[in-house]
Write a protein that binds this DNA or RNA. Sequence first.
DNA 1: CTTGAGCCTGTAGCGACTACAGACCGTAAC
DNA 2: GTTACGGTCTGTAGTCGCTACAGGCTCAAG
Lengths: 157, 157
Amino acid sequence: MHGHGPMTIGELSRRTGCKVETVRYYERIGLMPPAPRSAGRYRLYGEPDVRRLAFVRRARALGFAIDDVRTLLTLSRERRGGPCAEARQVAATHLAAVRAKIADLRAMERLLGDAVSLCATGEEPGCPVIEALADAPAAERGSARSRRGAAARRRRG
Amino acid sequence: MHGHGPMTIGELSRRTGCKVETVRYYERIGLMPPAPRSAGRYRLYGEPDVRRLAFVRRARALGFAIDDVRTLLTLSRERRGGPCAEARQVAATHLAAVRAKIADLRAMERLLGDAVSLCATGEEPGCPVIEALADAPAAERGSARSRRGAAARRRRG
DNA sequence: CTTGAGCCTGTAGCGACTACAGACCGTAAC
DNA sequence: GTTACGGTCTGTAGTCGCTACAGGCTCAAG
């Protein structure tokens, strides 16, 4: 077990920062190819696997859904250095979703911040946090939750 | 079935914008009390249920976890107009989580935006989206994913 | 030869719903 | 009466992306 030659799943895990269970999970769902096995049925990996898994982890860290990662992997395989309309489309769609989420969270931040700082002054009759929840107008359709659900449904097709 | 008197689950759903299945789910997990039943085993609700469910929906729309909502409900019951240190604590903790999430998403937004706009210029050799994923340094520990996981674990206790 | 770390498969759990299947209820029209 | 239709009932399984076991097997070091 020196530097070159195939590595075990634990070594792959150390090199990519991806947990062993997660690697096996990725194999199960087809995000990583089925690894060849040693005599004792241990999975064996090489440098291309390190690169592929690192790609997956970075895409996931940027918030791409598993299905998006699959698409991006395919695109990166078949179009090395070619046109990128499809990849740009996937990224642009995801970017829009990220921006929508940021907008939602900022709205939450403002409301929460207001309630908490009112609390801090201590001049209100009831707790401002509770009152904000009890007295605010009913939830509308265009809220954070609905939009999040819509995004998820879109992804699933 | 006119305006006053008890309403069915569908009417409660219409009045709060909360789906029928979600209302039943909330009852199952104890977020709503078990509703009294009609002769035909239909759930029956009154105005206090509308108020309670609206409270729950608003708290959820602000991103509070179910357990937080439970706490806030209890606090709103037992401390009407009293001190609010506990409620403020719950809200402040959640506010911090929201701010952390915003920071994560903004970092994603910046990276995605850069890659997509490089794509738009079309001057790069390979697709900038793919290249960004393939060539960037490996994921570190303090990434969006790890922090998200930590927050979830904290909430679960 | 024994220890111990690592690996294997398979399954269940998380949060917060959502989506059925298959039965039952209630009412209005015929 | 009866038929049609929509609402409601229970229970279960699916979603997403892992994570955490249990109960065994392998392999290298001492």
